[in-house]
């Protein structure tokens, strides 16, 4: 029998969404062009070549190494790209993803990435073109709502604050704004103004965000209501404790 990963226990919509994020089987909701993505990330000018830190691997004459023969380098590593980062912030008010699930999604579904998980933000470092591939995936799919999640390289304050009246997560650097019923980004992820307004699409309605979220909340799907998750969390903690217990 072929092994099929189960990813996450639970019968609630939140558990189902967590499984979706971890497996990478998420719905694509919007299109963001490569140039727009490059503008938002702010690491290089749109359309320019990827700067490199070393020559392409093919030209470097790599040593005879079984690991190098077994594991194929990622496109970014092959080309010698710089390591660059993308950082997301997700609101606690039913944002679709959370830092942990962005990291699971990155580590399970992408190669050559280094996810960093913090309480309010999640950063991924990778070779530039590999990082862009991941950033695009996460921005275009249901892992991101333009109102409740945003690209924030610096000054990430906002994930745990109440939402402003327009429903866009508070951002003291004003990187995103609501124009009509769409959200635009007019600064890059660190707050430098960019040449054009990038259309991030329509924000999710409150009902849709509640349906797509991976956050357990007492005012939506409570953690305590997911019996199977509770059982597994108890089991994990129990076994961790027993494992460390060594009477002599």
């Amino acid at each position: 029998m072929v092994y099929k990963p189960q990813f996450y226990p639970g019968a609630t919509s939140v558990a189902e969404n967590r499984r979706k994020h971890m497996s990478g089987k998420v719905e694509k909701l919007r299109d963001i062009s490569d140039d727009d993505l490059t503008l938002m990330l702010g690491h290089r000018a749109p359309g320019s070549d990827y700067p490199s830190t070393h020559p392409p691997l093919a030209e470097m004459g790599e040593p005879d190494c079984s690991i190098r023969q077994t594991v194929e380098a990622t496109p970014g590593a092959k080309a010698g790209d710089r390591v660059r980062y993308v950082q997301f912030v997700d609101s606690m008010y039913n944002a679709p993803a959370t830092p942990y699930f962005r990291s699971y999604a990155a580590a399970i579904n992408f190669r050559g990435v280094d996810p960093g998980t913090l309480s309010g933000r999640q950063v991924v470092e990778a070779r530039e073109r590999d990082m862009e591939q991941l950033a695009k995936f996460q921005l275009e799919t249901e892992m991101t709502c333009p109102a409740l999640a945003s690209l924030r390289g610096a000054t990430v304050h906002g994930h745990s604050l109440r939402l402003p009246e327009d429903g866009l997560m508070f951002d003291m650097l004003d990187r995103t704004r609501k124009e009509g019923n769409i959200v635009i980004m007019h600064k890059d992820q660190v707050g430098r103004p960019i040449d054009k307004k990038v259309n991030l699409g329509k924000p999710m309605s409150e009902a849709e965000a509640a349906k797509r979220t991976t956050i357990y909340r007492v005012d939506n799907v409570a953690f305590r209501n997911d019996k199977e998750v509770i059982e597994w969390v108890h089991r994990v903690f129990d076994q961790r404790t027993i494992y460390g217990f060594k009477p002599e």
Binding site: G153, A154, T155, M172, L173, D174, D188, V190, G191, R192
Partner: peptide, 11 residues
């Protein structure tokens, strides 16, 4: 902008 690469940009 108080810190980061964009320090000093008008918000």
């Amino acid at each position: 902008v108080p810190y980061g690469p964009a320090t000093g940009e008008i918000v």
